Computed example of a mutant assay.
Amino acid sequence: MRITIDNPASAPRPLGPYSQVARVELDGGGALLYLSGQIAEGDGVAAQSRGIFETLSALLEAHGATLDDVINIRTFMTDLDGLPEYAAVRARFLTATPPTSTTVEVPRLFRPQALIEIDVVAAVPAP
């Protein structure tokens, strides 16, 4: 098993001292991608959600994957009243079979303006 941890140059830079992607090569081909939680700037849950999914898409693309390859998504929201807005944006970006999912309300995120944070795991098929 080989593990690569990086911050792809083709995606937005991380907002702190952490790596955005851990790639685990699987025996027999393919890989699992573990993406760090992402936040985005914007006014409101919908705008932040769009920005997050755009970043997630860029990170996945840098490793030969797309949002269709996501097998697990975890969402942290500071107010679940914004769930309908998030769900509408999520439905536009995640159009394949829905991945396994967890959504929880948290009192705050690491940046005061952040309303939502999302991390994903994706399975990259063997070439």
Rank of each mutant, 00 (worst) to 15 (best):
D68M: 08
D119T: 09
S101T: 06
I52T: 13
P127M: 02
R108Q: 11
T55Q: 15
L15A: 07
G37W: 10
L33N: 00
L15F: 00
Q20W: 07
I5S: 10
L67S: 02
P107Q: 05
R108I: 01
I71Y: 00
I73K: 05
T97C: 08
V120M: 04
G29F: 06
G42A: 04
D81Y: 04
D119K: 06
V24A: 11
D69W: 11
L26N: 09
P99S: 06
A122T: 07
L109M: 11
T97N: 12
G51H: 04
L15N: 02
A11Q: 04
A123M: 15
G44P: 09
D43C: 03
S57T: 15
L59W: 10
Q48W: 03
N72R: 13
D79R: 12
L15H: 03
E61Q: 13
I71V: 14
I116K: 02
V124Y: 03
L56Y: 09
L109R: 12
L67I: 06
A123L: 15
L32S: 07
L83A: 11
G64C: 13
L56F: 10
L56T: 07
S57L: 10
A96T: 06
I3W: 03
R13S: 11
A91H: 11
R50Y: 14
T97W: 04
S57F: 09
I71G: 00
G37E: 10
T66K: 07
I116Y: 01
R74G: 03
G29K: 06
A87S: 15
A122D: 03
D6M: 02
L115C: 01
V106E: 05
T78F: 11
F93Y: 15
R108V: 03
E85K: 04
L33M: 00
T95K: 11
L33K: 00
I39V: 15
I71P: 00
D79P: 10
L15R: 08
L80W: 12
G16D: 14
V124D: 04
A87C: 08
L94P: 05
G16I: 08
R23Q: 09
N7L: 00
Y18L: 01
Q38S: 11
R23N: 01
P84C: 13
A88L: 12
